[in-house]
Design a protein around this nucleic acid. Structure first.
Ligand SMILES: NC(=O)c1ccc[n+]([C@@H]2O[C@H](COP(=O)([O-])OP(=O)(O)OC[C@H]3O[C@@H](n4cnc5c(N)ncnc54)[C@H](O)[C@@H]3O)[C@@H](O)[C@H]2O)c1
Ligand SMILES: NC(=O)c1ccc[n+]([C@@H]2O[C@H](COP(=O)([O-])OP(=O)(O)OC[C@H]3O[C@@H](n4cnc5c(N)ncnc54)[C@H](O)[C@@H]3O)[C@@H](O)[C@H]2O)c1
Lengths: 283, 283
DNA sequence: ATGCGTTTGTGAACGTGTGCACAAAGATGG
DNA sequence: CCATCTTTGTGCACACGTTCACAAACGCAT
């Protein structure tokens, strides 16, 4: 019997988000084992292949059920099936890609797309110069066809690879057409109604995070293996003093009222538990 | 031998990782405000623009110091500077991209690269047919030049866009050459020595996570109406509701809570959905 | 059957992240 | 100067995630 701890309703079913994010990782490792006809695998081995802690892996699997055999390990084929089923990969997921520029082209050509049940239903663009060309054997169709495509092919996942300025607009249109999951490559904060999932892939953010750690490594490590430039004046830390000065210089007479097109403070509306548009447009 | 993949050593004076990951988001919103010459911004406004909770934003900023003014908010320019400095964006970060195929080309052409101090130092590939061509005005150079480029240009960040099979090998070579931060687009678990940071961008994983939630959305509710959350904003979107119903009617599946017995395994052919995929391709 | 070595599944401790709520700090107006 | 209003900075409680450690379960040999 499944014993589900009740008491809170945050997650409908008890698979933690962190676990869900790791299941594809396990699945990939298991698929590789399956191709080599490995019959069973221990949590230790599989965890090593997936680059995670073995206890974490076992706990993750425990959310799916008791699929292992003590003293032996996990049946590879069976686990592949169970994870696939849990992730919803036993069915086909048609996907539309909107914005067939540099990145959209690359994604359209990406073989790993179809390998897990994700099928490119259509490539869409708004530029007449792009519409009509083809990418990866698929024709690029005009945005006007979005609604009919989404409906006829039951598309529930959309990928946005348009410039940032068009992303929210494209997103709105996708949602309106019936798409309920969006993968956003544009560096924009998307606002969507409840029930729609958005995940973002942001190269710039990843690089900035790397830069942060890189700077820390360079600045705090006493040992210096290779010769670097003479430590670019890492502004010491009299920042508080500079703060007042800078604030004073910037302040002067400038006030929020200088903004003509927005009634800036009017939309405070504290009790906001619903999602509305951001107060200021991100770019 | 392999040590712990990533030695997460929490520094005493460290900024939480979750905060670091959000700083670029704040920075982007602040930059947009700066371009519009907005002098100050409250945590509420900025949080809305960045799509986060305002208390979280304030706590994030509190790790950087007390840079706000009570009753007023934060000075935009000053905060841009502080976050940039904290992230290490006040200096230039040369980057090499290895594997100039579909994705490598797109990245090379990406304007957002240079906009934050990340400069493409070189494009590298192993294929003689690709070497010598150019992408985004930069010549594609041969892997043999990697070491000299990394050393002469002080490259500490490498981007891997090779096929999965070559990723670990390329990674090893990057590390050997002196690169200490890697952004990996190949669906591979990279093993690196201590002191080297790896971040990955994995389209396939993102899609699978979306598919999981999508499946849940489609399968967890009874046919009639759902009554699970107190969110009142429900009837405001008839189109989406209709789309969901249509989709539900098309592909129900998603057996609710079919607890499988452990004894009868090897039921992988039981997926009588669309068509059975052996899942053999590397994602 | 019994014992032994192996490995799972999970309780429990611990660490990290989130969000509420509010006192304190500063601006603003009188 | 004081009163009032706005917004920050943070204590606190709780939710979530990670890791340890070990009893129970299982295969296998005797
Ligand atoms: N190229 C990269 O490597 C890369 C990396 C990270 C993020 N991004 C982001 O991905 C997005 C796309 O980048 P790109 O380099 O491919 O840009 P791009 O300019 O090459 O392509 C954008 C495409 O979107 C189309 N488009 C514009 N407005 C549209 C609309 N309203 N509806 C439909 N289509 C529309 C354009 O016609 C164009 O074909 C950008 O937001 C960029 O910031 C790109
Ligand atoms: N194309 C996409 O949209 C996309 C999306 C997600 C992930 N990925 C992943 O990104 C990677 C690249 O994808 P792609 O579509 O650009 O592939 P691709 O085949 O078009 O390009 C790969 C490039 O890497 C080069 N290469 C191969 N081995 C190398 C080596 N040892 N050293 C240096 N260069 C080498 C090849 O010559 C080729 O130019 C793959 O791992 C893929 O799984 C791609």
């Amino acid at each position: 019997m499944r014993r589900t701890p009740v008491g809170r309703q945050t997650r409908a079913r008890g698979i933690p988000e962190a676990t869900v994010a790791r299941l594809p990782l396990y699945l990939r490792a298991l698929t590789a084992l399956s191709e080599r006809s490995v019959p069973t695998v221990s949590s230790e081995e599989l965890a090593a292949a997936a680059g995670v802690n073995s206890a974490k892996l076992r706990k993750d699997f425990s959310y799916l059920g008791s699929y292992g055999t003590r003293g032996v390990g996990y049946d590879v084929e069976y686990l592949v099936y169970q994870i696939s089923r849990e992730l919803g990969l036993t069915q086909d997921w048609p996907v539309v890609i909107v914005g067939i520029g540099n990145l959209g082209h690359a994604l359209a050509n990406y073989g790993g797309f179809a390998s897990r049940g994700f099928r490119v239903a259509a490539l869409l663009d708004a530029d007449p110069a792009v519409v009509g060309s083809s990418a990866a054997g698929l024709p690029v169709r005009h945005m006007d066809e979005l609604e009919s495509i989404v409906e006829s092919q039951q598309v529930s996942i959309g990928v946005i690879t348009t410039p940032p300025g068009a992303a929210q607009q494209v997103c709105d249109r996708l949602v309106e057409a019936g798409v309920t999951s969006i993968l956003n490559f544009a560096p924009t904060v998307l606002t969507v109604p409840d029930g729609v999932d958005v995940r973002k892939v942001d190269l710039s953010i990843e690089l900035q995070i790397l830069a942060f750690h890189e700077q820390r490594k360079a600045g705090e490590e006493p040992e210096d293996e290779r010769e670097e430039e003479p430590a670019p004046s890492r502004a010491a830390n009299p920042v508080r003093a500079a703060a007042a000065k800078l604030r004073r210089a910037a302040g002067g007479s400038a006030k929020p009222e200088a903004k003509p097109e927005k009634t800036d403070k009017a939309q405070k509306s504290a009790a906001g538990n619903d999602h509305e548009r951001p107060a200021v447009m991100p770019a």
